[in-house]
């Protein structure tokens, strides 16, 4: 479903990604781990071309993301994205946050978009907040709205960019629960996170990155109990002693 082949990315002279090779199957949940600055968010943002790759090939659903002629809007309708800081539209009510893209980008009728939105709001457990403004919601609630917003486009892939990093600890659980439920339904997910519990429990595969490279790729039970690479060991030991 998603394939990186020898992907490099530069910011000027600075190389952020080096020789990325990664394949994500349909229905797979891949968790990307790594110290901050390791390039994991950048890699994630390449998938829907919020960041441009410098060389190599990146294919999503058979479409070359790195080619100029690619219809970005069409590509992105198929990839939902959840951000660290939620990025809800503050001037719109919760319900309008969710229906905007389906109405404008998909051309769905207002009534249908509304129905879909309510369906996903119920799914993330905050249908009662449909008429509220984002600023009236807690961080956890906002992030759940953001997930519902992504799902309302009925994408095949969901990207999560540190979805719980900006949350107060007591709200992390409610967001992870929604993500777990989504994973169980068979959504293809790529998740950048620091939540080891989530990775261990939900991930089909863990990808460990450091200094712009994928250092290790393994099933979670193997990665957490017996990491092969020195850097992964160091990373895990720091986290555990933290």
């Amino acid at each position: 479903m998603i394939t990186f082949h020898e992907v490099d990315k530069f910011y000027g002279d600075f190389q952020v990604l080096t020789g990325i090779n990664l394949h994500v199957e349909s229905g797979e949940v891949v968790v990307v781990l790594g110290p901050s600055g390791s390039g994991k968010s950048t890699m994630l943002r390449c998938i829907n071309r919020l960041e441009e790759t410098s060389s190599g090939q990146l294919t999503v659903n058979g479409v070359r993301v790195d080619e100029r002629k690619t219809d970005l809007n069409k590509l992105r309708r198929n990839i939902g994205m959840v951000f660290q800081h939620f990025n809800l539209y503050p001037h719109k009510k919760v319900i309008d946050n969710i229906t905007l893209a389906p109405i404008k980008a998909l051309g769905v009728s207002k009534a249908e978009a509304h129905q879909t939105a309510m369906h996903y709001l119920e799914k993330v457990g905050i249908a009662d907040k449909a008429q509220a403004y984002p600023s009236q919601l807690s961080g956890g609630q906002q992030q759940r709205v953001a997930i519902a917003r992504g799902l309302a486009m009925k994408p095949q892939i969901m990207l999560f960019d540190e979805p719980t990093s900006a949350l107060d600890p007591e709200m992390v659980g409610e967001v992870l629960d929604v993500m777990k439920a989504l994973a169980l339904e068979g959504m293809t997910m790529v998740v950048v996170t620091h939540e080891m519990g989530f990775a261990r429990e939900v991930a089909d595969r863990v990808v460990f990155m450091d200094q712009g490279r994928i250092v290790e790729e393994a099933p979670p039970e193997q990665f957490f109990s017996d990491p092969r690479e020195e850097r992964a060991k160091l990373f895990l030991s720091r986290l555990l002693n933290h």
Partner: peptide
């Protein structure tokens, strides 16, 4: 306006003008 607003809008498949 924070950069994340444009990113959120674009990544949901809306055009630049939308």
């Amino acid at each position: 306006v924070p950069k994340g607003q444009m990113e959120a809008a674009r990544s949901s498949g809306m055009s630049y003008i939308q």
